[in-house]
Computed example of a mutant assay.
Amino acid sequence: MQAFRVVLPSGTKYWTVVDEDYGVVQEADRFLRETRLARGRAESTTKAYAEGVSLFLRWCEATGRDWRTAAREMGLFMLWLKWTPGRGGKSASAVVPGPGSKPVRQEIRVNKVLTAVRMFLLHGVTERTVPGWVLEQIYEVGDTRDLPVAAQGESGGMRLRLRARHRVSEPETDIDRASDEEVVAMFKACRSARDRLTVLLLSRVGLRPGQVAGLHRSDPHLLMDARPLGCDLEGAHVHIVRRQNENGAWSKSKKPWAMPVDFLVVQAFDQYALERHERLPSGGSDFLLVNLFRPPYGDPVTTEAIGELCESLSRRAGLGRLVTPRMCRHAMASNIVDAGGTLDEVQALLGQKDPSSPRPYLHPSRARLRDAVERVPSPRLRVTEEGQ
């Protein structure tokens, strides 16, 4: 069993599971196709699910278990996941780790696989291809009656809630951020206006790589008055919209939102527009960031290319460590807070739910969001002042 990428006639891409003869595993394919098409999840999500489900089905095949009822022995599957390397085949049915052996898969990887398996089996229960009792094997099933009144919802009716039974305790890791010095060094190491704009979109605007690669030329509204463009928002801003993009770029947030940008980002947009016109007078594709220096010229950059750019800039700038796009995003959020921004402002600016609650309760005004962005000084200025 293995994960396999599928491209539909419509151009939509998702991942499925195939057997050793590359025959599609129908039950897994229905689950993964529905995840992509009906639920609108990203292609990368179906890839993660397909990899997890393929491991589960491989374990069932290797140990002679029926995948529909194997959930009653999920603990053995977790042991197999931890110690069985690669595509172990049928010889991996008995796992005996020796003294001093290192786990093949770390806790975070095991938990991701278990999440995929739970979703797969839950889909099977819904479709009635998996016995209903399996639900109690993978979830602790309860209701909302024991919750505080404020958390029971407005309907007043009883609702079921599910809590995963099988989960490995993950070691706590510090969430790091890129420092202003690192961002400035990466910015200086850029060799094109396009790369400088990319660094600012990551570290100054706080976009995810998929959101940066998915921007279209119509998304930035850099005029103070955007009404001629059919937009009633004031000031320079960028619209973040989830789309089915040909380069696979995907915005994690389902809800579109507009992100205010400051003069540094506007200048970077202007410089990139001149560079793009010089390199591609015909314009290229409708995507904002495109290939300018290697073929296929004019094609959109990919999410992977943005990660590779950060790796290259980190090395070229001599930072001594890899500064990732996620660290740049954390830098943006931290700078907003350091400049006096509030949690709800960060929440709205990053296009995410309140990190301390399952639903956002605070809604900052657009004017306050713009003020939050304008309060953050130039990273170059911050570095200069701190060096004096």
Rank of each mutant, 00 (worst) to 15 (best):
S192H: 08
A193Y: 02
R194V: 10
D195E: 14
R196F: 05
L197G: 05
V199E: 03
V199D: 04
R204C: 03
L207I: 07
R208K: 13
P209W: 04
Q211Y: 00
A213S: 05
G214N: 00
H216P: 00
H216R: 14
R217F: 00
S218Q: 12
P220D: 05
H221D: 12
L222P: 00
L223G: 09
L223T: 13
L223H: 11
L223N: 11
M224G: 14
D225W: 05
D225I: 07
A226P: 00
P228S: 13
P228N: 13
P228D: 14
L229N: 12
G230P: 04
G230F: 06
C231Q: 09
C231P: 01
D232F: 03
E234V: 15
E234W: 13
G235Y: 01
A236W: 00
A236I: 07
I240L: 06
V241H: 00
V241A: 02
V241N: 04
V241K: 01
V241T: 10
R242A: 07
R242P: 00
R243W: 04
N245P: 04
N245E: 13
E246C: 06
N247R: 07
S251N: 11
S251V: 15
S251K: 03
K252D: 05
S253D: 07
S253P: 03
K254H: 10
K254L: 07
K255N: 05
P256M: 00
A258C: 10
M259F: 01
M259C: 11
V261F: 03
V261Y: 00
D262M: 02
D262T: 08
L264M: 14
L264K: 01
V265D: 01
A268H: 04
F269Q: 09
Q271I: 10
Q271A: 15
A273Q: 11
L274H: 13
L274V: 15
R276N: 05
H277V: 12
E278Q: 11
R279W: 09
L280P: 02
P281M: 12
S282I: 08
G284V: 08
F287T: 09
F287Q: 09
L288D: 06
L289W: 02
V290Q: 14
N291K: 14
N291W: 08
L292F: 05
L292A: 08
L292I: 13
F293D: 15
F293G: 12
F293C: 11
R294L: 11
R294T: 14
P295K: 13
P296T: 13
P296H: 11
P296Y: 08
Y297D: 05
G298D: 06
G298E: 07
G298V: 07
D299F: 12
